[in-house]
């Protein structure tokens, strides 16, 4: 009966994951390996293809609305203002051709790109929050502790969720409609060029563990339920919840990967690497805030990064 409970928990979290995250690993890997046939992503590898990228998105009509049809229009415009955005002149619009030609200088380009990444990240934080709320027992925790768990967990979760979208050559963006090459990201001016490299390095190694979507769901819940986040008021119930999810994850890995030795241990070790990546990422953002005159940080991300590490 205990194993049955753990299986039920895994199933529940997998369903919550599918409900809240529009691009699954299964779908992303299908796109990356060219199994989607006529729906191949548009490749951005230089400034010219970047400009054409928007045209591509406009012609295609974004499938976001299918996923998010239950949300208000307001939300949809926040979504489309991201990299997949067709909203020209939006504050966060990056692929908007008009804004590129109007503002001209290459310098502003990285900032605009950075802003559209922020928009998508903020939306992802909302998705992660909804996922967290579906973890059994999470909503019953002290509200201040829920905030702390999210504050410290979301960037780690974001980075883990990027891994399935990446391979050694680049990353899917805009809900899998666009593939942006690693070389292009590296060619942006400093420090923007340094932002993604550590994530590529981490992702290539993480992907070697070959987790599926149900295991990803459990791992994300484990990360969120970290009892050692600074400032937690009531650690015990968080640790108890995490322990149950850890058992479920361990069982799931044994069933799905019977010949992969120590996979559970290897996965837990990734959490150490992850914390270092987040610390470096936050420091880079804080540096950007100081050095870039025109930079504005999205209010939600600002809230999360304030006094974080």
């Amino acid at each position: 009966p205990e194993a049955a409970d753990l299986r039920a928990l895994a199933r529940h979290l997998y369903e919550a994951y599918l409900k809240n995250f529009p691009l699954t690993k299964a779908k992303a890997r299908a796109i990356l390996s060219g199994k989607t046939g006529d729906n191949a992503p548009f490749v951005i590898h230089d400034m010219k293809s970047l400009m054409e990228g928007e045209q591509f998105i406009n012609c295609r009509q974004i499938p976001l609305k299918e996923h998010h049809h239950h949300h208000q229009q307001q939300q949809t415009s926040a979504l489309t203002a991201g990299l997949g955005g067709a909203h020209q002149g939006s504050e966060y619009g990056f692929l908007g051709m008009t804004s590129i030609s109007e503002e001209g200088p290459q310098d502003a380009l990285e900032l605009r790109f950075f802003h559209s990444c922020q928009s998508r990240s903020a939306e992802a934080v909302r998705e992660i929050t909804e996922f967290a709320k579906s973890i059994p027992g999470f909503s019953e925790l002290d509200l201040n502790d829920q905030v702390t768990l999210l504050k410290y967990g979301v960037i780690e979760v974001l980075i883990i969720m990027m891994a399935p979208l990446m391979n050694k050559d680049g990353t899917l963006i805009s809900y899998g409609q666009i593939f942006m090459t690693r070389e292009f990201l590296k060619s942006l001016r400093k420090p923007f060029s340094q932002m993604m490299e550590p994530k590529f390095e981490f992702s290539v190694k993480f992907n070697m563990l070959e987790l599926d979507d149900s295991e990803m769901a459990l791992f994300l819940a484990v990360i969120i339920l970290s009892g050692d986040r600074p400032g937690l008021l009531n650690v015990k119930p968080i640790e108890q919840l995490q322990e149950t999810v850890l058992h479920s994850l361990e069982l799931q890995l044994k069933l799905n990967h019977p010949i992969s030795l120590q996979l559970f241990a290897k996965l837990l070790q990734k959490m150490t690497d992850l914390r270092q990546i987040v610390t470096d990422h936050v420091h880079l953002i804080q540096l950007l805030k100081k050095t870039e005159v025109d930079m504005c940080l999205h209010p939600l991300l600002q809230e999360i990064m304030k006094d974080l590490y």
């Binding site: 208000q72 939300q75 928009s119 934080v125 909302r126 509200l143 201040n144 999210l150 809230e303």
Partner: peptide
């Protein structure tokens, strides 16, 4: 609490989305 206003809102509202 004021420091994490949006996170609080996201945690407490399930249907009405915060204007991100």
């Amino acid at each position: 609490k004021e420091k994490h206003k949006i996170l609080h809102q996201l945690l407490q509202n399930s249907t009405s989305p915060v204007d991100l």
